[in-house]
Amino acid sequence: MGDMNKTIISTAHAPAAIGAYSQAVKVGQTVYVSGQIPLDPVTMEMVGPDFDEQATQVFTNLLAVAQASGGTLANAVKLTIYLTDLGNFASLNEIMARFCDEPFPARAAVQVSALPKNAQIEIDAVLCLD
């Protein structure tokens, strides 16, 4: 592993890391995107309490990091979605369909008891660049 070619991806168009992590790490043609919550990248404040608004901001943040890595969400091969209420699953699918085209990436969606800053949704991603 000492020879691993690792590139740190960073963009001002997505929220700055608020802990000991990078927005994304690229190894070869694979990009590992850290979990995104509904923070506005300019103000670093949460968007409103509406789930649809939060989910839209999360996908917007993911897209910004994907673009900074040289890709788009079309390069996503795996998403892990964390929800504080699985009752928002149908809304999640509608919003995801606005950002991701078929063939859709593999994904997992799980309900968790809490997320940072009381977010209702967090998503991380793995991208494979062409």
Rank of each mutant, 00 (worst) to 15 (best):
Ile8Trp: 05
Leu127Met: 14
Ile121Gly: 15
Pro116Asn: 11
Thr56Asp: 14
Pro49Ala: 13
Gly48Tyr: 07
Ile95Lys: 03
Gly28Phe: 01
Ala74Gly: 08
Pro49Phe: 13
Tyr32Ala: 01
Val77Asp: 03
Pro38Met: 11
Arg98Pro: 00
Lys6Val: 12
Met4Tyr: 04
Arg98Ala: 02
Gly19Arg: 14
Thr84Arg: 01
Leu115His: 08
Asn75Thr: 06
Ser10Gly: 08
Thr7Gly: 01
Met46Leu: 08
Asn93Cys: 10
Ala16Val: 07
Pro38Glu: 12
Leu86Met: 00
Thr60Tyr: 04
Ala76Phe: 06
Lys6Ile: 11
Gly35Cys: 11
Asn88Met: 03
Gly35Glu: 12
Asn75Glu: 07
Met44Lys: 11
Ser69Leu: 06
Leu39Met: 07
Ile121Asn: 15
Met96Gln: 05
Ala125Val: 09
Val126Met: 12
Val42Asn: 14
Lys78Ala: 06
Gln120Met: 13
Asn88Lys: 07
Asn61Val: 04
Ala66Met: 02
Ile8Glu: 06
Pro41Tyr: 06
Ser91Thr: 12
Thr11Leu: 03
Gly2Arg: 11
Val112Ala: 11
Met1Val: 03
Gln36Arg: 14
Ala66Ser: 04
Ala125Cys: 14
Thr30Arg: 01
Gln54His: 13
Asn88Glu: 06
Val77Phe: 02
Val47Ser: 10
Ala76Leu: 07
Ala108Met: 13
Gly28Val: 02
Ile121Glu: 15
Ala68Met: 05
Pro116Trp: 10
Ala55Ser: 12
Asp3Ala: 00
Leu62Ile: 06
Phe89His: 05
Val58Met: 08
Asn61Tyr: 10
Ala17Phe: 04
Ile18Gln: 09
Pro103Gln: 10
Ala90Ser: 08
Leu129Val: 10
Cys100Ile: 12
Gln120Ile: 09
Gln67Cys: 13
Leu83Asp: 05
Ser10Phe: 04
Ala119Gln: 15
Asp85Ala: 00
Thr7Asn: 02
Lys78Gln: 08
Tyr21Thr: 02
Ser91Arg: 10
Asp52Thr: 12
Met4His: 04
Ala109Asp: 13
Val42Ala: 11
Ser91Asp: 11
Ala125Leu: 10
Val47Lys: 07
Val33Thr: 05
Ser91Asn: 12
Glu122Ser: 15
Pro41Cys: 09
Thr11Val: 04
Ala24Thr: 00
Val25Gly: 03
Val77Met: 03
Ala66Val: 01
Asn5Trp: 02
Ala108Thr: 14
Ala24Pro: 00
Ser113Tyr: 13
